Amino acid sequence: MILSREARQGLTLISPTLVYALLLLAAPLLTVVTFSFWTQDYLDIDTTITLNNYREAWTQPIYRTLIFRSLWVSLVVTLVTVVLAFPIAYYLSFHVTRRKALWLFLITIPFWTSYLLRVFLWKVILGYNGVLNSALTGLGIIDEPLTFLLYNVNAVVITLAHAWAPFAILPIFVALEKIDRSLLEAAEDLGDGAVRRFFRVTLPLAMPGVIASTLIVLIPTVGDFVTPRLVGGTDGLMISNMIQIQFGKANNAPLGAALAVSSMVIVSSISLVIFLVGKKFGGRVQ
Rank of each mutant, 00 (worst) to 15 (best):
F94V: 06
L230A: 00
V226Y: 05
P16V: 12
T39F: 00
V174F: 14
L215P: 11
I211L: 14
T221N: 13
W38N: 00
G127K: 09
L230W: 01
W58F: 14
V285T: 15
L22F: 15
F198M: 13
I270N: 10
T48L: 05
G256P: 04
V273E: 08
R98W: 13
R229Y: 06
D41M: 02
T34H: 00
I142G: 13
I172N: 02
L126M: 03
I270W: 13
I2A: 15
P145E: 12
Y42P: 00
A101T: 09
I243V: 10
G256Y: 02
G232L: 09
T17I: 15
V19S: 13
T48I: 05
S134Q: 08
A212R: 09
D143T: 14
S15F: 15
L215G: 09
V195M: 11
T234F: 07
V157G: 03
H162V: 05
F275G: 05
W38Y: 11
T108W: 00
L136M: 13
R284W: 12
L259E: 06
T234M: 06
D235E: 07
V76P: 05
T108A: 10
P208S: 07
V76W: 05
L126A: 06
V32P: 05
W122C: 03
G256C: 06
L13R: 13
A175L: 02
I270Q: 11
H162K: 07
L255K: 12
Y90V: 03
T31I: 11
R200W: 04
D44V: 00
E177K: 03
R197C: 06
V267S: 09
L276Y: 14
A175D: 02
L136T: 05
T147W: 08
L11D: 02
L11K: 10
Q40L: 01
L92F: 03
V80G: 01
L79K: 01
T202G: 10
F120P: 05
G209I: 06
Q286G: 15
E185G: 10
V201L: 06
T147F: 03
Y20H: 14
Q244H: 09
V285S: 14
S263F: 01
Y90Q: 08
T59A: 12
F105E: 09
P16W: 13
D224V: 11
G283M: 11
A168E: 07
Q60P: 01
L22S: 14
I179W: 01
T78M: 02
N52F: 08
R5S: 07
Y115A: 08
F94D: 03
G130M: 11
L104G: 12
F198C: 11
A257F: 03
V131T: 15
L176E: 01
L149F: 02
M1D: 13
L18S: 08
Q60G: 02
V33L: 11
T31D: 07
D46W: 03
V285G: 13
E177D: 13
I14P: 12
L255S: 08
T147E: 11
A253T: 13
V80E: 00
P87F: 04
T50H: 06
T234C: 00
F94I: 01
G193V: 04
